[in-house]
């Protein structure tokens, strides 16, 4: 029985050790940022030959879930007019605001922007930039508004690490937004 008692004490000691490891999980809640988060997408249309910039945005400051997107503009363009189109991606959930556009530009060989108007007669997009492998990027380009009408402009940011080949196929969507498009 002496042995038993010793072992029992050992067990008790063991439990005491175990309990000292318990902690309050509430003390360790940290604000952790999603590295891939994009909360704001802004399309900046500059009418050719002018300095007139019109911007259209999608904004969801708290990211997916939580509150609904606060802004999702309808793109409004003049018929038969040419624009320089620049796109800006921000993560506004962070302080300071994280400029994702710069990060995309740095990793331009992994990203491709795809602009798909529907119907196609509304707009024609021409890429204005190229990555080191001579594939288009789409951070800047020319958008030529076509005939008057309404429809959609799908803006996709394709993330294509080690797979970019100039086509939208490889990779997955980081952004996939259907802006309403009005050409008048």
């Amino acid at each position: 029985m002496k042995m038993n008692r010793k072992l029992t004490w050992m067990l008790l000691f063991g439990i005491a050790t175990l309990f000292t490891q318990c902690k309050d999980s509430g003390d360790e809640v940290e604000v952790d940022d999603e590295n891939e988060l994009i909360t704001s997408v802004t399309l900046k249309f500059t009418e050719s030959g002018t300095n007139t910039v019109t911007s259209f945005s999608y904004k969801d400051p708290d990211g997916d879930g939580g509150n609904a997107p606060t802004k999702f503009d309808t793109i409004s363009l003049k018929a038969n007019t040419s624009y320089t189109l620049a796109v800006e991606f921000l993560d506004e959930s962070k302080t300071p605001v994280d400029n994702i556009t710069e990060e995309i530009a740095e990793k331009s060989d992994e990203h491709l922007l795809v602009y798909t108007p529907n119907p196609t007669s509304l707009l024609t997009y021409t890429y204005g930039d190229k990555d080191k492998n001579n594939y288009p990027i789409g951070l800047t380009g020319t958008a030529k508004a076509g005939v008057a009408g309404t429809g959609k402009l799908k803006v996709q940011l394709r993330h294509q690490p080690n797979a970019k080949n100039g086509t939208p196929g490889p990779g997955s969507d980081d952004v996939n937004l259907d802006f309403n498009l009005k050409v008048k």
Partner: peptide
Amino acid sequence: QWTIAQQINNRNEYDLHVPRNDSI
């Protein structure tokens, strides 16, 4: 009978894409 047990489960999940920011 008396049984005590401690379990520590440590799960790390890595996404397909690394963060865009190189230093991270």
